[in-house]
Nucleic acid binder design. Structure first.
Lengths: 193, 193
DNA sequence: TCCGTACTTGACACAGTGTCAATTGACACA
DNA sequence: TGTGTCAATTGACACTGTGTCAAGTACGGA
């Protein structure tokens, strides 16, 4: 019975390994099965579909990397500005570690409605983090008047999207540090007054 | 012999019509063929692959919508700030008109390397527009010192991506006018000194 | 009348996902 | 010793959509 859980974990480990190695591209169900030392059909005994496996993999990665602890500094920040900075720093450091898995789920969206739904759910959670940072700035009275909370959240959320991170770090060659510092600078200049 | 060209155009028209109607989603080669009053195989007589058809469709749309004329105001702007504003205004008004086609090419990227290449080419052209606006700002001596031309181009280009436009207008509900005004405001505040 | 061109029809290969049925091997319980 | 159950295996198959191939048709021009 616990072998049930162990096998599931084995599949998730294999999925993470392959997805990170291939940056999320062209990893098939059969590849993951083979890497986990199972038949392809056995994977379907644990996950109903590729979308479900990918979604479970993102959750597994979040747990393994300690998402909650990593969010602590941002949540604990004393000021709105500090919270915004800490959130961007967290995000800029976190993204490279989940990129392969995120990329796979992102690619699956085009064909697979379930994958799109799973991705949206994750991004809504990330949006909540953005909103919290903006709300902290506002309660300090430092959110620039031109922005409402929702609109500022919209913009910050969009600016911090995985696609944008990908474009800046992969296509434009920004380092993690450059990404973080520049995003922090733009966010401060954009939202803060 | 000119029927050759006419048929090609007929296919492109059908592709545009379907892609705009369905916002780029689930439009197959057979659908386009049927809409053009042809067999699926006839389409392959004019376009070697789906990626090639989609790429040709984007060029066709650019021509039909008068891309060059639309870019004129930005190119003619007297100041760097004016050029930046005009470019963002052009882009914000242009995107809704090409969204369906762009979306299809975007989705095709996941599976199709040729589609990815075609998309990248289009985006590099758009990047040149961003660079020109930044360069104009710089030659006015008004590009904020923290930014180099390339890095400012990177960021403006990313900020104006189709995905970002999609997220802000579709997911967040921003109107075209809101998109343009806010992007202009952020761009000015971010790059200008 | 013959030729070339544009197009049609229908069949097929190929990937990858997801489904189904029959079977095996291990372990537990009685 | 037999029975039930559970995880997993093997192999076959349906489905979708792209792209290929071959044979045939319809039409217009020299």
């Amino acid at each position: 019975m616990s072998s049930d859980v162990e096998t599931r974990t084995r599949i998730l480990e294999a999925a993470v390994r392959l997805l990170e190695a291939q940056r999320g591209r062209s990893v098939r169900m059969g590849d993951i099965a083979r890497a986990a030392g199972l038949s392809r059909q056995a994977v379907y005994l644990h996950f109903a579909s590729r979308a479900e496996l990918l979604a479970a993999t993102t959750l597994y990665v979040d747990k393994r990397l300690g998402l909650e602890q990593r969010l602590a500094p941002s949540r604990a920040a004393g000021s709105g500005t500090g919270r915004l900075d800490a959130y961007i720093e967290f995000w800029g450091n976190y993204l490279p570690e989940i990129y392969g898995v995120a990329r796979a789920l992102l690619d699956a969206q085009a064909n697979d409605a379930a994958a799109a739904a799973a991705w949206n759910e994750r991004m809504q959670a990330m949006r909540d983090g953005c909103r919290a940072a903006i709300a902290a700035l506002e309660s300090d009275g430092r959110l620039a008047k031109r922005w409402s909370t929702e609109e500022a959240t919209d913009f910050l959320w969009t600016m911090l999207s995985v696609r944008n991170w990908e474009q800046l770090t992969q296509a434009c060659g920004w380092s993690t540090g450059q990404y973080i510092r520049r995003m922090q600078a733009v966010a401060r200049r954009t939202f803060q007054e």
